[in-house]
């Protein structure tokens, strides 16, 4: 990995943690976009690792308090977002066009929904531990979380739609142009 790439990954990771911990409206977040972007830029491994680390740190320092039992589910959800970004970057071979915005918006919405399903399953698992049967616990957790998921998925759809393509352009310029990015893509 080039020094410039390592510096970029470090800065983006710090930015990701900072944004995740910054005050913001409930269920509106930019972490997923950054984790997805890093996955698309540096590959599946870096994206997944960053997703996991961000949610691990968030679990301790979040303004909502210690995540506790929910932490592994949050980590799993965000690892999946990083994995999705890595898969998308690999499938596009680092060639992004303006139409990529729509693709990433759909992927962002899908990955956010999966993240919410995983974390809601975490809530259901908590209920199961206190004796609530499996099926009612899952249904109640999924259904009661629906309004929050709606806000989360819709907001991420627009965040990905507006954010992914311009950020890839900025990153291209930072690493020295489109060709370098393509050449170095996925090389660690």
């Amino acid at each position: 990995m080039q020094t410039r790439h390592l510096a970029l990954l470090t800065i983006l990771s710090a930015l990701c943690v900072g944004i995740q911990l910054a005050p913001r409206p409930p269920n509106v977040e930019f972490t997923s976009l950054l984790v997805f972007l890093i996955g698309a830029f540096f590959g599946v491994y870096s994206g997944s690792l960053l997703g996991g680390v961000v949610m691990f740190v968030n679990g301790f320092l979040s303004s909502w308090g210690f995540a506790g039992f929910m932490m592994p589910f949050q980590i799993a959800g965000m690892v999946l977002v990083g994995f999705g970004g890595g898969w998308y970057g690999k499938s596009k071979k680092a060639e992004y066009r303006s139409s990529s915005s729509v693709e990433t918006a759909v992927l962002g919405a899908l990955l956010t929904l999966i993240y919410d399903l995983i974390t809601n399953f975490g809530v259901a698992a908590e209920h199961m531990l206190v004796g609530i049967p499996v099926f009612p616990a899952i249904v109640v957790a999924l259904v009661s979380g629906a309004p929050f998921s709606l806000v989360h998925v819709l907001s991420n759809f627009f965040v990905f739609l507006a954010g992914f393509f311009p950020l890839t352009r900025v990153l291209q310029k930072f690493v020295g142009g489109e060709n370098i990015w393509k050449k170095d893509f996925l090389r660690m």
């Binding site: 759909v106 899908l110 929904l113 999924l142 979380g145 629906a146 998921s149 998925v153």
Partner: peptide, 15 residues
């Protein structure tokens, strides 16, 4: 996109 819409719509309708 339709899959996300359907799943989210079902959840919100159930809610």
């Amino acid at each position: 996109g339709f899959l996300v819409w359907a799943m989210l719509g079902s959840l919100v309708a159930a809610y």
